[in-house]
Design a protein around this nucleic acid. Structure first.
Length: 462
RNA sequence: GACCCUUUCAUCUAGUGGCCAAGGAUAUUACGUUUUCAACGUAAAAACAGAGGUUCAAAUCCUUUAAGGGUCGCCA
């Protein structure tokens, strides 16, 4: 069975790049009806926070990516890691290193000066003498000293790293706490991971983790290293490039399905297809098709996708989703009409909410430019006649088409173009020159409200 | 500095030696539709990083240059 995971460290919110990596992992698991596990990497007690962990979980909930099983916390597994450290020590596969931090720094500076890659020199690897006073040792693992550490990366291809590039790295700090590369390898193995999909900033951790796998006799999983997402200029994505926190997309009025559709196409594709439902993603996704190159983040396409998903969202659901944006129309008797008239001109829920407010609330003032243009000439007279016509209309006025008949009548009677009535009417009712079709708007408001707004406007024309 | 990865329109991408004088999508521009704004429709413009090879044939294979990114912690 395929088992994948997402393993964030709880030091901040869930990043948009992290969500894509998680999505790829989640899709891989769903595709083969496997499991997607969640592990919190909180071995660095100083930097963890409970809030960060909750924020990450909340973001997953919002996008609807559910993990299988219990969340695994590394901080609760220290005993387990300790056992493996002792085992390696006993087997002579790891050793205590008494090098002080000062000595280490000095060594690095020396190597830098010689323009070498900095690495631990293995001075305590075969140490049998008496340890120096006052130094709490760290535990280092014995990495191979010659040959290649090779693995096949599902994205990058075959990787061969010279053993000399990997030093005897620390697996337990002086205070006994295990380090990242050590615990990751153990947890991935123990949790039964078959496919590890992660950011390619971890590419160089892989040979280190393979050293651990080998020392402990664990089976090595498949690795997929996904290239980073950069900003539009190709630089590392930072806060100034816009929203990086996943939850910000919620407050900006994006639909989770739009965000996921956007992210899945960053570094992955299926021919010319752009729109993917969750089901299609699951059916079609294969991590082997992940692109090697990094991609640049650009909001335009997300906006387009969001508009698409808003347009196709059932109105009842949309009404619920609009509540946090200050629009409560769930009980509105013309709900369907109202949303049908507005949902095509809102790229985000924020914009859609604005459109709805424009209709639902009577204008307090009229856009100056629009009023100047629309309320001139015979506009007052036309509006007066139109209001009268609405009041005395002898057929019921319910549908947009009913109101359209009234429009047609006044246009015919007065021998004017639609613009002569359309523009002043629009400004009277909406306060501005833009928005949905007048027929629909009047049908939503009803005769009384429409007439009231027209009469109020007439009064201001003077 | 060392090691590793990457490079097709402004952006996401298709492309696995001949179907490519490079396709799709977004964004842009024009036109159409319309009582306005959108939406929609049609069209235009827009790319194989550079240089050398290999081959009958190269975006695709090789070499090299350049640019960008990553890693070099008792962080994760």
């Amino acid at each position: 069975m395929t088992v994948t995971r997402f393993a964030p460290s709880p030091t901040g919110y869930l990043h948009i790049g992290g969500l894509r990596t998680a999505l790829f992992s989640w899709l891989t698991a769903q595709h083969s009806k496997g499991e997607f596990l969640l592990r919190i990497e909180d071995t660095d007690m100083a930097r963890n926070s409970e809030e960060a962990k909750d924020a990450i979980l909340k973001a997953f909930e919002w996008v609807g990516m559910h993990h299988d099983g219990e969340v695994v916390y590394q901080s609760k597994r220290f005993e387990l890691y300790k056992q493996y450290i002792d085992q390696l020590l006993e087997e002579g596969k790891a050793y205590k290193c008494y090098m002080s931090k000062e000595e280490l720094t000095a060594l690095r500076e020396e190597q830098m000066a010689k323009k070498e890659r900095t690495r631990y020199d293995g001075r305590y690897r075969d140490f049998t003498g008496t340890p120096p006073e006052g130094v709490e040792p760290v535990i280092r693992i014995k990495a191979p000293q010659e040959g290649m550490i090779s693995f096949v990366d599902g994205v990058k291809g075959e990787m061969n790293i010279a053993a000399t590039e990997v030093d005897d790295f620390v697996i337990a700090r002086a205070d006994g706490a295990p380090t990242y590369n050590f615990v990751v390898a153990i947890d991935d193995a123990l949790m039964g991971l078959t496919d590890v999909i992660r950011g390619d900033d971890h590419l160089y951790n892989t040979p280190k983790q393979i050293v651990v796998y080998n020392a402990l006799g664990f089976k090595i999983p498949n690795f997929y290293h996904v290239a980073m997402i950069n900003n539009e200029q190709g630089k590392k994505l930072s806060k100034r490039d816009g929203a990086t926190d996943v939850m910000e997309y919620k407050t900006m009025g994006y639909l989770p399905e739009a965000l996921l559709n956007f992210l899945v196409r960053l570094g992955w594709s299926h021919g010319d297809q752009e729109i993917f439902s969750l089901e299609e993603m699951i059916a079609l996704f294969d991590p082997k098709n992940i692109n090697k190159s990094s991609s640049n983040y650009n909001l335009d396409k997300l906006l387009w996708l969001n508009a698409h998903y808003i347009k196709n969202k059932p109105n009842a659901e949309l009404a619920e989703m609009l509540k946090p944006f200050g629009v409560d129309i769930a009980g509105h008797d013309k709900l369907e009409m109202l949303l049908d008239a507005t949902k095509e001109r809102g790229k985000t829920l924020v914009e859609l909410a604005d459109q709805i407010k424009l209709i639902v609330t009577a204008p307090e003032s009229y856009d100056e430019k629009a009023a100047k243009k629309a309320f001139k000439g015979e506009a007052k007279e036309i509006l007066t006649d139109f209001a009268a016509m609405l009041k005395s209309w002898d057929k019921p006025l319910h549908l947009p088409s009913d109101y359209h008949e009234v429009m047609e009548k006044i246009v015919a009677e007065k021998e004017i173009g639609f613009g002569k009535i359309g523009m002043p009417l629009r400004v009277s009712v909406m306060g501005a020159m833009t928005g949905s079709g007048m027929d629909e708007i009047m049908a939503i408001l009803g005769v009384d409200e429409t007439v009231a707004r027209i009469e109020k406007a007439i009064a201001t024309i003077g």
